[in-house]
Amino acid sequence: MESYMMSVDNVTMKFGSLVANSNVSFNVKEGEIVSLIGPNGAGKTTLFNCVTGFYKPSSGKVIFNGADITGVRPDKIAKLGLTRTFQIVKPLKSMTVKENIMTGAFIRTNKFSEAEKIAEEVMERINLIEKRDYLSSSLTIADKKRLEIARILATQPKMIMLDEAMAGLNQTEIKEVMKLIVTLNKQGMTFVIVEHIMEAIMPISDRVVVLNAGVKILEDIPQNVVNNDEVIKAYLGEKYHAKNQKS
């Protein structure tokens, strides 16, 4: 058996009678970029929350780096090296860019100067150094998303999970985020990405997991995913799929 950095094993999440995720399994190897796609309401964010400890799955298991992290508190998971961003950005508004990133850095150190050093490094790496003293509430949406990534980078994670890090950005900004992801990946960072913007995600992903109505319908390399009938059906509907078949 291959060793995986993270394996999600038969995770089911129910909210009352609503099944948001049903027996979803997938694995992530170290250094990979795996993306999670699916139409609205497919259960991507729920799955994210289950993996990162914000929800306790109804059943199933999540293993990260050999440790069972099912239902473990988010802060403990972050300490193990698995961190996430949020679909809706959550900057610490009253703090400056630097202070935001320092807050992340404090996970590995108790020293103020050490945290400052880590923050400086991270800001250099992802081009926020000029905005270090800006209040985070005054940033543009693109910079806020960048700041979210910076803040979790400061926790020195082994794997990053991005929840729609590109939503609401313009083309240039999307390219910048893509570039950032690829650069970090080359430096050895593992990614799991939830995304809607296909043209952004397909070129950078190693593998794609497709969810529909809480069920995993496909896991494959990007080229095969875009041509898959099931996926087209899920995204564009039965009708379009039928039309497509006839012609």
């Binding site: 990162t52 400890g53 802060d75 300490k79 961190t83 961003t85 959550k90 610490l92 103020f112």
Partner: peptide, 26 residues
């Protein structure tokens, strides 16, 4: 106010979810 604890408390005040996601035991 000028230590790890102060940063963590401010983060908790601003956004408990974000605080948890970066490893803060709220």
């Amino acid at each position: 106010g000028n230590s790890k604890m102060g940063f963590y408390l401010k983060a908790i005040k601003e956004n408990p979810d974000a605080a948890q996601s970066i490893g803060i035991n709220v």
